[in-house]
Amino acid sequence: MYFADTTTIGVPYAKDPKVVFHQNRYLMYYSVPGVRFQNWSIGIAASTDLTHWKKVGELKPAADYEKNGLCAAGAIIKDGKVHLFYQTYGNGKKDAICHAVSDDGLAFTRNTTNPIFSPKGDWTCGRAIDAEVVQFNNKYFLYFATRDTSYKIQMQGVASTPLNTSFNQNEWTQLTDYSILKPELPWEKNCIEAAACIKRGKYLYMFYAGGYNNEPQQIGLARSTDGVKWTRVFTEPFLKNGEKGSWNESESGHPDIFTDTNGRTYLFYQGNNDKGRTWFISKREVVWKKDKPVLL
């Protein structure tokens, strides 16, 4: 699978994949830029086999708070509807997480309390991007990337809301006043972002992107029993960037872990070999052996 959108800026470009199964088809949400790489929006593609995708829609900036752009969607299915969690873009430290809901996965109604979340405290600059919402331990956890007050270190934070939530702004509780996962390993450099979570047994696993785009960004893995305290499963990347000359030479980044209706799991991710002039989305199947994932 190699998917990219050529309808926006004339070259193949698709980043930040998020896949759900809804109304008998797969939907993938991804980020695409506008003219001169401004006013980003969220493209929507559909598939019946997880390999061949066709663009079927786009969520473009509309509300005043997203006038500079929106991107990097997380998504869940709740009560038969698609709930999208996306970030505003182009506002620096003021970028925050927003929420919208849809019956068909294409036409979305924005939450009237948007933006629904941004972190507080002296450990963060106040920015929140790359939302991932997952049901775990009888609540919904929201994982987000933020930066320190110097705006140099990208790291993970967490908030939660009850199962009967409407995902409104006043329903979220920030769970820590510190980062739950920040870069420590050499290959992570100054960035951990783009959390993608899956529950397996007693653990919640988090696939994450280490390193900023094209440094190269590569995918790591951590796990937790409470959703707050995390331990790395591997010290090396779970999925590295490709060898010289390969399609993902510049990076393998921004993961999404998707469980199909038959229980099989797939790791979606972005990559390129030209330092970001183009971007493609691909996938690898993941199998689980002794509580640890293995790439096929």
Rank of each mutant, 00 (worst) to 15 (best):
V158D: 11
G157M: 11
L296C: 14
T261C: 00
W230H: 05
L175P: 07
R110K: 15
I77G: 03
I9W: 09
N262E: 12
A159T: 07
D274L: 05
T124L: 02
T7K: 12
E285I: 03
G92I: 04
Y208C: 07
R200T: 05
A107H: 14
E184D: 10
R223G: 02
N24K: 15
A4T: 07
T176K: 15
I76P: 03
E171I: 04
Q135N: 04
R200C: 06
N213A: 09
F167Q: 09
S31Y: 04
F258H: 02
R127H: 05
P12Y: 05
Q218Y: 00
T225F: 00
T261Q: 15
K289Q: 15
L221T: 12
H99S: 06
T88R: 01
M1Q: 06
T109P: 00
G90C: 08
G157V: 10
Y208G: 05
Y151A: 14
K182I: 01
L295R: 08
V20I: 15
N24G: 01
T235W: 00
V56Q: 11
T8E: 15
A196G: 14
K240E: 13
G271Y: 13
Y13P: 05
N273K: 10
K152C: 07
K202V: 02
W172K: 10
C71I: 11
M155Y: 03
R223C: 14
K120I: 12
A209G: 10
E193N: 11
A100Y: 10
T173H: 13
A62C: 06
H22D: 11
W279I: 00
W247K: 08
A63T: 01
G74W: 03
S118D: 02
